Simulated scan of single mutants.
Amino acid sequence: MPNGTEVKITETKVTEAEVSAEQSAEVKQQDTKQPEAKKGLSKGAIVIAIIVAVALIAATGVFGYRAYADAQFNNAMAACATASEDVRNATNDYNNLLNGDASDASALTKDDVKDPSTLDALNKAMGAEVPVYEGCIAEDTKGYQAATDKLTEQVDWYKTHTTALQKAVDAVNASKK
């Protein structure tokens, strides 16, 4: 009996080994029959990634443009404030001359000077119509730039007329008897 039992056990072991080998072969065949799994992202994921990228680019563009526009606006506003200060200084220089030395020189009479035409030139220079100050009142960048241009013209007017008035005052003073 021991010999018969051993044979059965050995046969069973051989049968189990054969079945395992067959199953392994079948699994290998099934693996080769199945298509390979897709590598990378699915089409839906790619589309979503593209949409997100486009949205990020658009948002960056919008925020970039706004930052640029704000910087331009702030620069225009600062330039207008500087031009306004320049007008104030030029106006003060002109008014100090007009109310000081020019006023004193215009008080002279034709009998007090050798050349009476210098008094006429002084009075004409003193009678110039000064520009109306408009200030930096604007709502946008172009408005501030236009205001800055007007203020710059006013600075030029005051400088030119201050120089002309000073020459007229000097001419009257040089003509004193």
Rank of each mutant, 00 (worst) to 15 (best):
V54G: 08
T148M: 04
L165E: 10
A171D: 10
R88M: 11
T162D: 12
E6H: 03
T91S: 15
T5A: 13
G143T: 00
V132I: 10
A69T: 09
L41N: 02
T109F: 05
L165M: 12
R88V: 08
T12S: 13
T162I: 01
N96W: 05
A71C: 04
I137G: 10
N75V: 01
Y68L: 08
F63N: 10
E36T: 06
G40L: 03
N89G: 08
L41C: 02
E153D: 13
E18S: 05
G61W: 01
K33Y: 04
L108P: 02
T162Y: 02
F73W: 12
T162Q: 11
S117T: 02
T141I: 00
K13L: 14
D115N: 10
D104G: 05
L151Y: 00
K167M: 10
A37L: 07
E11G: 13
D120N: 09
N3E: 14
L97A: 10
A67H: 04
G127L: 08
N75G: 06
V19F: 11
T163Q: 11
V113M: 04
A81D: 09
Q29L: 11
V7K: 13
N95D: 14
T160P: 01
T152S: 01
E153I: 03
G127I: 01
T160R: 10
Y133M: 08
Q29D: 07
N89E: 14
V155G: 00
N89L: 15
A49V: 02
T141H: 07
T32W: 11
K28A: 15
V172C: 03
I9A: 14
A107R: 09
A49D: 06
I9M: 14
S175R: 05
N89F: 13
I9R: 15
K177A: 04
A76T: 00
N123F: 00
T5S: 13
A78W: 08
N74K: 15
V27Y: 12
T15W: 11
